[in-house]
Every structure is written in C-alpha cells, then in structure tokens.
Design a protein around this nucleic acid. Structure first.
Lengths: 153, 153
DNA sequence: TATTGTTATACTCTATAACTATA
DNA sequence: TATAGTTATAGAGTATAACAATA
C-alpha cells in the first residue's frame, strides 16, 4: 500500500466534512428563512421540545453555541411566541426554556419541510447506504460529548 | 426509539452534521496551530498539490471560500514560502497557485499528523463501518459540485 | 462586455470581560 | 467561592462594492 494514497485521504476527509455541512445548509436552510435565528433557532426549539435540558448553559453546551449568545436566541424565540422562560423554584437562578403550544405547532410544520429537504439532500445514494451513513454519523456526533471533556490534550 | 422517530430524525441530522464538524475540528485543528490560516490554509495547500485548478477563483469555489478572501490566503502561504503565484502565458490575467518544494515537504509532515488525529476521530466505530461511512460521506460531499455548477465534472 | 485578481469596506457571527443574583 | 443568566464590547470570519488589467 502506498503512503501517498493514505496521505491524500487525510485532507479529503476534512474537505468532505466541510462540504457536507455546506451542502446540507444550502438545501435545508431555506426552510428556516422566516424563522428567528434560522437553523440554529430551529435546533433550539427542537431541543427544548424533545430533550429536557434544565439550564440555558447546558442548552448552549448541547447546541454548541456560546453561553453568552444564548440569551439572544431565547429572547428572539420568546418574542416570536415559540418558547418561554420558566422559573425553577428549586434553584431561583435557573430559568428553564420550554416550548409554547404555538412553538410546538410551528415546529411540527417546519420538521415536515425539513424531512422533505433532507430527502433531496440524500438524493444520489441508496436507501441502505443512507441508513448506514446516518447511523455512523449519529454515533460519531454523539461521541463529541464524551470527547471534549475527557480526551483533551 | 423506533416509533416517532421520523420528525425527530429531521433535526437530529442537522445537529449531527454540525456536531461532526465541530468534533473533527476540535481533534484535528491543533495540528494546524502554527500553519498560516489554519485548517483552511492546509486544505488550500493540499488542493494545489493534488488537484490542478488553474485559477484562484476556481480554487476559491472548490474550497468554499469567497473569492475576495482568496488573495489573503495565497499571500500568507506565499509569505511562509509554501506556495507561489505562476503567470499563465495563455491568459495573462491568471496567476496559478502552485506549491513550492518547501510547501510539499511541510504538507507531507502535516498530513501524517492529520492521519493520526483522524484515527482518534474514528476511535469508537469499527473499521468496516468507518469505510462505509467515509465512502458515503465522500459521495454526498462531491454531489454539491454537480449541484452548484451545471456541468457534471 | 465579461472575467481574473485585488483592495477597501461593511456586515455577521462568535468570543471575552464584567456585572447581578442566587447558591 | 462558584454558578446561572445577562449585557456590552472586541474580535474573527465573511460577504459587498468597486477598481485595474486582460480577454
């Protein structure tokens, strides 16, 4: 086996990952055109609906955005009527972000459009390859939580 | 986990892709700490070594960076002695970016470190799943070219 | 007129520092 | 002292507009 081939694959992986993200955004982002904070705002709404993450800091960590920009996201989604802050009686510093019924309805509409857009995104590879890809992708993405904390250097 | 997953998977895919990119950057980017323009600069060097892309505009398009920032990339890599601009006698507007011997040497050093870092990135999934994943990833990433530009290859 | 390369400018997104109120 | 939330500011990265040289 030649070293040249392996070395070539090294950077193509970085390029492929960057391209994948750009292509996904190019196809799916139009769905979020009228939604506050675009794709990130939608992901925030998705998260507060499906996961139970009590604090805004933990939410920011999960979504990979800085703690200091989280208030702006919550403000915008709250102004639009999709989420609201809920005081935690057990810890009065905490304001848990929860979705409003309006937010849930809007989310359900958007998620349908996202699904359609994602079918276009996967147009070009077979259903079986797609399933295997999504499985490995999900696995590799979820590793990051364990990685960033323990496997630093 | 198998019932109501259609709507849920919709956003998790976007989250997973974003997370994948962040995790890859977190693990691999330290390699490029001392390299001009970091990972993007390395990808530029990789591209001019392995592909023959004549114009800086086409290079910018391939790397997914704006054409107006390309001169800064080339300037920095040229100052470091890794690339140089080569006049094209057939079209005197064009200055093709080519790697210097110094640049090729530096690239070979870096690509070895990238390979090691990428092994850590894939630590957690099997070799077979990795191969399938990289294949589909590469395929999906390359689709974008056919999408944005009308000509197929 | 269109394109290549380039520069200057403006804009967006993100990170840094500091403050408050709670624990 | 440490943490949750917030705000203001500075920085990095990106896009917009315009230019000279060439096709």
């Amino acid at each position: 086996m030649s070293e040249d081939t392996t070395a070539r694959e090294a950077c193509d992986l970085g390029w492929s990952i960057a391209m994948l993200g750009r292509r996904y955004a190019a196809i799916v982002d139009p769905v979020f055109e009228t939604f506050p904070r675009g794709a990130r705002g939608y992901q925030l709404l998705h998260t507060v609906i499906h996961k139970r993450i009590p604090t805004q800091n933990a939410l920011a960590d999960y979504l990979g955005i800085d703690r200091t920009v989280m208030p702006y996201f919550v403000d915008d989604l709250q102004s639009a009527g999709f989420v609201q802050r809920q005081d935690d009686p057990r810890d009065r510093r905490v304001r848990t972000v929860i979705a409003t019924p309006e937010g849930i309805t809007r989310y359900q509409e958007l998620s349908q459009q996202v699904l359609r857009a994602e079918q276009a995104f996967f147009d070009g590879i077979g259903d079986e390859d797609r399933a295997v890809f999504v499985h490995s992708l999900s696995l590799l993405a979820r590793l990051s939580r364990d990685d960033t904390s323990s496997r630093g250097r």
